[in-house]
Design a protein around this nucleic acid. Structure first.
Length: 424
DNA sequence: GCGCATGATTGCGC
DNA sequence: GCGCAATCATGCGC
């Protein structure tokens, strides 16, 4: 049973009621008095019974206020006694009312907030990267797609790709593990708090609505942790992606042989150095865009500085011619049917940089070696690039010399080369 | 470390 | 979408 303790201070002994005078709840307490006074209970109007009732409430409140100072066992016993006290329901409702009026129950509660736009962005990104949502490898695919469309990848890009995928998979795995932990912790903590509040609601005014609000607060707090987790995951993905893209950008010089094959194609198609899609793919077995880049750079740089590239052009022209002369089986000769690097169309052409009749540089186009050059050693179709002028050229080869005889409307040129290929 | 060569990227026009 | 031109960024020889 509830132990009656001597009251001091605010007790009825000082004639000032329950020590809550002036408190917003005073009115409620008075209403309790009135409620208690108009029925079976004796009135509070100065009678002995009324005085006892006040003292009773004062005792209860005093015990509640001092309960935290007591030992656990003692407090448990007091709690039980209070729960069983006949005044408890009335006091509970009064305290609830006081709490409502003072706004305590509304503390830290806010209206339902719209979803955080930052969280929405993070969710969308994680979804797009394939970290959140069903596993689909979308992120890696997207990155690879971006890589191929905007530049081209190195020959060992597939290795980098798989590396990227495996790292992304690791991030995904960590993210989901942490998310699970977070959800578990959130559920556990929420359940714990709810149980605690339900338990406390027996001794202090805690309404179900307040419990709901508390749960919402907990969820908000945990949501901020979730946002941090998502943000960290996004950062990790961005870093990974950036490293992947950096690796893609990393320049790797082509091998000498690869450059040779490309140069041979370029210089043997100098009048139209635009390989078809198929030719680009066939060349070097490299990515389409890599070959496109090479030809793009080559065209521009050749055009900018023809003089500088002339020697190179001559060299490749001679190699082609020599290869053809030696039996169409040179492994580096693009015109050769046996090279396998790429095949030339019937309109394939080759330019030789030679001194023009007036001392200027001219380039003479030779026909396809497969069809004309090696069989008859003569070419009839010639063209001066940039001038639309056509020349007739007769190319004679022998073991010792390589000569080109050209005829034009107003000029005839005979050029002979020794095996040392002293061009220009 | 510096300068050059060269593969890759970007912005623009067609 | 492709090619051009400018530019960036890196590899490499000195």
């Amino acid at each position: 049973m509830l132990q009656q303790q001597p009251l001091t201070g605010n007790g009825p002994s000082n004639g000032r009621g329950l020590g809550v005078s002036g408190h917003p709840g005073m009115h409620s307490l008075n209403s309790v008095h009135q409620h208690r006074s108009d029925g079976a209970e004796p009135g509070l109007d100065g009678t002995e019974n009324g005085h006892e009732t006040r003292r009773d409430i004062g005792d209860i409140l005093q015990q509640i206020m001092t309960i935290t100072d007591q030992s656990l066992d003692e407090a448990q016993a007091k709690k039980h006694a209070l729960n069983c006290h006949r005044m408890k329901p009335a006091l509970f409702s009064v305290l609830c009312e006081i709490k409502e009026k003072t706004g305590l129950s509304m503390r830290n509660t806010q209206e339902e907030e719209p979803q955080d736009p930052q969280l929405v962005r993070l969710d969308n990104m994680l979804l797009a990267e394939g970290v959140a949502g069903p596993e689909k490898g979308g992120g890696a695919a997207a990155a690879v797609s971006a890589a191929t469309s905007s530049g081209g990848m190195s020959p060992d890009s597939s290795l980098e790709h798989s590396d990227y995928k495996s790292k992304l998979s690791q991030i995904r795995s960590i993210y989901h593990t942490e998310l699970e932990k977070y959800e578990q912790a959130c559920t556990e903590f929420t359940t714990h708090v709810m149980n605690l509040l339900r338990e406390q609601s027996r001794t202090r005014p805690v309404t179900p609505r307040e419990i709901e609000r508390m749960v919402a607060i907990i969820h908000r707090k945990f949501s901020s942790i979730q946002t941090q987790l998502k943000q960290s995951t996004c950062e990790a993905v961005m870093i990974l992606r950036s490293r992947f893209l950096d690796a893609r950008r990393k320049r790797r010089n082509f091998s000498k042989q690869a450059t040779e094959v490309l140069n041979e194609y370029f210089y043997s198609h100098l009048s139209n150095p635009y390989p078809s899609e198929e030719a680009k793919e066939e060349l070097l077995d490299k990515e389409y865009s890599v070959v496109s880049n090479w030809f793009g750079n080559k065209r521009i740089r050749y055009k900018k500085n023809i003089g500088k590239f002339q020697e190179e052009a001559n060299l490749y022209a001679m190699k082609t011619a020599l290869g053809a002369r030696q039996g169409e089986d040179s492994p580096h000769t693009p015109n050769s049917t046996g090279s396998g690097s790429f095949s030339l169309s019937g309109s394939a052409d080759m330019f030789l940089g030679v001194p023009g009749v007036n001392g200027e540089q001219s380039a003479y186009q030779m026909g396809d070696s497969n069809s004309n050059f090696t069989r008859s050693n003569t070419v009839s179709s010639s063209h001066i690039p940039g001038t639309r002028k056509h020349l007739n050229a007769h190319i004679h080869t022998s073991q010792e010399t390589f000569s080109v005889q050209t005829t034009h409307a107003d000029a005839s040129v005979n050029i002979s080369f020794t095996p040392e290929f002293r061009f220009i």
